[in-house]
């Protein structure tokens, strides 16, 4: 602390400097949102995270679907159906699990380290803290795990398979991948506000995903359609223009409602957090 007298300065200088700075003007419930979002996005795009994530998802999703396209010797239309039914359902599932693994420490890590308490000692609202994380992770996963692999998939399959894959239905399928990813993201963030260690978060998140794989075939339809578990099948069917059961919108609406409810629960619980 070698320059105290110089840096503390006199009152006039301090007041002049203060007058030049423009205070942040945000609604109370969104206080600090812009700053925290910039920081969260910086962690995705200002570090190697974005290209590591992109590389992993391209290798997994595009790698497997390309292998299927190159090794199956069936008619082009059947092959197209095969690769779409591989790519989209696999995307919904694997990205969901990847989201749980990557995001499990997003809230709880900050609670454990004390950085959440530090941020909340500044003029930042708790809802802004959660929403900044939600938005930054949603954008990060959307670009690295969905947009780039889906674009590569569409271009690659058009080049490899001499059959038509209409863009709009394919985008409907991609939309359901986004919906599934958002479900697991909000689930993980919400669990992070309720628990104080990563174990239960990863356990419940991955357990829910695995339960979908194991129980889907045995579960009564009334319960199944209230979960995101049918989304992989619906995504494939929509992309290929296949005929779907009349109740196909129900899991989409239910998942949307569940995302909203889990976001509200996360905001409510974090608002009551005692640091």
């Amino acid at each position: 602390m070698n320059a105290q007298s110089k840096s503390v300065g006199n009152q006039d200088r301090i007041l002049a400097a203060r007058q030049g700075l423009i205070p942040v003007r945000e609604r109370a419930w969104l206080g600090g949102f812009g700053n925290m979002l910039r920081k969260e996005l910086g962690q995705w795009w200002g570090t190697r995270t974005w290209w590591v994530q992109t590389l992993i998802w391209v290798l997994i999703l595009n790698g497997i679907s390309t292998i299927v396209a190159l090794t199956e010797s069936i008619t082009p239309n059947d092959l197209l159906q095969e690769v779409v039914q591989t790519f989209l359902p696999m995307s919904v599932g694997i990205i969901g699990m990847g989201t749980v693994i990557t995001t499990q420490g997003a809230i709880v890590g900050e609670k454990q380290l004390g950085t959440a308490a530090w941020a909340m000692s500044k003029p930042a609202s708790r809802s802004a803290f959660i929403l900044a994380k939600l938005l930054a992770y949603a954008i990060g996963f959307f670009v690295t795990a969905i947009l780039i692999p889906s674009t590569i998939f569409y271009i690659t399959m058009r080049a490899l398979i001499p059959a038509s894959l209409p863009l709009i239905p394919f985008l409907y399928g991609v939309g359901l991948v986004i919906l599934g990813q958002l479900f697991y993201l909000t689930l993980t963030l919400m669990l992070g506000t309720f628990f104080s260690s990563r174990g239960p978060i990863a356990g419940i998140g991955i357990g829910f995903f695995m339960a979908g794989l194991l129980l889907k075939g045995f579960m009564p339809m009334q319960i199944l359609i209230a979960t995101p578990w049918p989304l992989p099948d619906v995504a494939g069917g929509l992309a290929l223009g296949a005929s779907l059961p009349s109740i196909w919108p129900v899991p989409i609406i239910a998942t949307g409602i569940e995302i909203a409810v889990m976001t509200i629960l996360a905001l409510w619980r974090f608002g009551r957090e005692e640091f």
């Binding site: 602390m1 320059a3 840096s7 300065g9 030049g20 500044k122």
Partner: peptide, 25 residues
């Protein structure tokens, strides 16, 4: 930290950051 309080201008925020770095050596 400064951006929780001030939205700009950037040069004044940077000047304040520099001043604080000097203050604590």
């Amino acid at each position: 930290t400064a951006r929780f309080f001030y939205q700009g201008p950037k040069d004044l925020i940077e000047a304040r950051v520099e001043e604080m770095l000097e203050l604590v050596g």
